[in-house]
């Protein structure tokens, strides 16, 4: 769990997770093409995310595809969010999303 928090405590790494969330299963080159970071930096961040099990890789022929793995984040949520609060929190977050979408010009 320490590895997950360490990995998430960096804006560039959260950005990488956002990119994979939007388009799962990308190669290193695909990720680099859309980011303002050097290949070495992206590669280093991906290694930290992989160590924390937030990113999982799959080999497809000669390519290595990167996938966002949300399971550790879910396990963290599970630890502190009780089963009785879950539905209320879901309702609040649905309401927040609806209100924020509604307020867009």
């Amino acid at each position: 769990m320490d590895a997950v928090f360490r990995a998430l405590a960096d804006a560039s790494r959260r950005e990488l997770l956002d990119r994979l969330h939007a388009d799962n299963g990308q190669t290193l080159s695909e990720l680099c093409a859309r980011l303002d970071m050097t290949r070495q930096a992206v590669s280093k961040h991906l290694a930290i995310l992989e160590e924390a099990n937030l990113v999982v890789t799959v080999k497809r022929g000669r390519e290595k595809l990167h996938y966002l793995n949300p399971v550790p984040i879910h396990e963290i949520a599970e630890r502190w969010i009780g089963k009785f609060e879950r539905h209320r929190l879901q309702a609040l977050s649905d309401m927040k999303r609806a209100l924020e979408q509604g307020s867009k010009p």
Partner: peptide, 9 residues
């Protein structure tokens, strides 16, 4: 290509 890959230990 897999649509998603989930891993747990």
């Amino acid at each position: 290509k897999p649509a998603f890959v989930y891993v747990t230990y």
